[in-house]
């Protein structure tokens, strides 16, 4: 029997949780920032795919790209409204998540903002002075992955992933 969209949504969500587990292991081991961000980006991408697949169906989602910026804030609103729809903290947090969602999306090699953002967590790229930039030696100044916002983001991804994988 062919897999249904719900099966795919569960699968994406399960993989998101595993990606976050990998990030935890890497963070404790002191791995380079590119690796921590890589698994954070992967988990974010998977939870957004789980969300979209559960709503729009697998066939309409599987080949789409560039959906984190739009959908991560939607997921945040959805799950924080379950805590308390009038939650001031949630509104503050969602604003921050909107900001970081775009930067997380740009960490993927396939997303380069029309060629203006070559920095990514996986492959070397040509820098502004035509030098070669290496992910493991790059500081990724647009994302502070040691900030408290990362705690909130990871907790959101886990909550949503557990919901979609149930």
């Amino acid at each position: 029997m062919p897999a249904k969209s719900d099966d795919w949504a569960r699968a994406y969500a399960k993989q998101a949780l595993s990606d976050l587990d990998a990030r935890e292991t890497l963070a404790l081991a002191g791995a380079d920032k590119c690796h921590r961000l890589h698994f954070l980006q992967m988990a974010t991408e998977k939870v957004c795919k789980a969300h979209l697949t559960s709503r729009n169906g697998h066939e309409n989602v599987r080949k789409t790209h560039g959906y984190i910026e739009k959908n991560l804030p939607i997921i945040a609103r959805l799950f924080y409204s379950r805590v308390n729809s009038a939650n001031q903290m949630a509104m503050w947090e969602i604003k921050h998540i909107e900001k970081i969602a775009r930067e997380i999306e740009l960490l993927a090699p396939a997303c380069d903002d029309g060629g203006t953002r070559q920095d990514n967590t996986e492959y070397p790229w040509e820098g502004p002075r035509r030098d070669v930039q290496v992910p493991c030696a790059y500081s990724f100044p647009n994302i502070d992955d040691e900030s408290r916002l990362i705690v909130r983001l990871i907790r959101l991804i886990r909550t949503a992933s557990e919901s979609y994988s149930a």
Partner: peptide, 11 residues
């Protein structure tokens, strides 16, 4: 206002 998730360490 945080999501309630029990004891869940983040590294």
């Amino acid at each position: 206002g945080t999501l309630e998730r029990g004891i869940e360490p983040i590294a």
